[in-house]
């Protein structure tokens, strides 16, 4: 049974449209014109318990609006949604007990208080039994190395430390679902890896369902097998990450290091992506030309010292999807 289910979810924001200047400001007091904008337009998906899903899209695509509806702080204009059996906006507080939220750009910790006191406060808010609280805190402290800054005020923590604190805080009450909004933004590689490891472990060991909203697709690649791609309020892809790579990653790159000097370099069926001295990057379509055939063609005409094939990274595929939009050839695959 799905833990999250949305059907034709839609959210329209209504804003006042007024003329510029002082006249417009006064005019709007008496006569108002409204402008409607659909932030989310018919989003449907379902998630099984224990899934990690990358919910991605460009800025203004409707990701945060969807998350806000799932957390119950926004009421959908139309459509239905259920989160762990509840309609979130009808039972916001009950729904909040089932979820944990981490925002990369906003902290739920108390700025002036030590981390430990913020955790104590969260224990009181979520009514976590003392035993469970101690066990969770000990485990998270161990996993995220929190002990050395547990008594430091949050305002004195580095971004990486604060994020680790935020993660522990969001998981203290054993939520069924965790919404992560840009959880690794601004973090260094070591901190990112620690956070990713933590998310993966919590998902594996506790069966926590995770919705990961991010622009850093490395997070998605590392953690989830499924992605939901949203653009202009609509789901343009819902399915396996590998399938996306298969279907959209049609072009690969052959990196060739030439052993001799070849001012004129050309290979039939491939285009030169870049060339720096003896290092040439060739782009080819794997549907029309196999890597083996291309390598053979190169080796027949040139002497080479090294060769490598680079698979398309998910970032370039998603960039292409953003630019080209939804293609009828790629139907939305129910997970």
């Amino acid at each position: 049974m799905a833990i999250i289910e949305t059907v034709e979810l839609r959210k329209v924001f209504r804003s006042i449209k007024r003329e510029p200047g002082l006249g417009g400001a006064f005019g709007a007091l008496f006569s108002r014109r409204y402008e409607e904008k659909a932030a989310v337009e018919g989003v449907s998906f379902s998630l099984e318990p224990g899934e990690i899903v990358g919910y991605i899209g460009p800025n203004g695509a409707g990701k945060s609006t969807t998350i806000k509806m799932l957390t119950g702080i926004l009421v959908p204009t139309s459509g239905t949604l259920r989160v762990a059996g509840l309609v979130p906006h009808e039972r916001r507080e009950a729904n909040a007990e089932n979820i944990g939220v981490v925002f990369g750009q906003r902290s739920q910790l108390y700025w002036d208080l030590p981390l430990r006191e913020s955790f104590e406060l969260l224990r009181a808010i979520y009514d976590v039994p003392r035993e469970r609280y101690r066990a969770n805190l000990a485990e998270f402290s161990d996993l995220l190395d929190l002990e050395r800054f547990m008594d430091t005020p949050v305002r004195q923590l580095s971004l990486g430390e604060r994020m680790r604190g935020d993660f522990a805080g969001a998981m203290l009450h054993d939520p069924k679902i965790v919404y992560l909004d840009e959880p690794t933004i601004g973090l260094d590689v070591v901190a990112k890896e620690a956070i990713r490891g933590f998310i993966g472990r919590v998902n594996r060991e506790r069966g926590t369902t995770v919705i990961l909203t991010t622009h850093d697709l490395a997070d998605v690649e590392r953690l989830s097998r499924r992605i939901i791609l949203i653009d202009e309020g609509r789901v343009i892809y819902d399915g396996a990450l590998e399938r996306l790579r298969e279907e959209y990653g049609t072009h690969r790159t052959l990196v060739v290091t030439l052993a001799g000097s070849y001012p004129e370099f050309a290979v039939e069926g491939a285009t030169i992506e870049s060339r720096e001295a003896n290092l040439v990057r060739l782009r080819f379509d794997r549907r029309t030309l196999s890597a083996e055939a291309l390598v053979r063609r190169v080796m027949e005409r040139y002497t080479i010292s090294d060769i490598a094939i680079v698979e398309p990274d998910i970032e370039s595929i998603v960039r292409r999807l953003y630019l080209e939009g939804y293609r009828a050839a790629l139907p939305v695959e129910p997970a």
Partner: peptide, 13 residues
């Protein structure tokens, strides 16, 4: 600053 959203995401009044 939008931080009220985090308050509403907690099981509190």
């Amino acid at each position: 600053d939008g931080s009220i959203a985090t308050d509403f995401m907690k099981p509190i009044k």
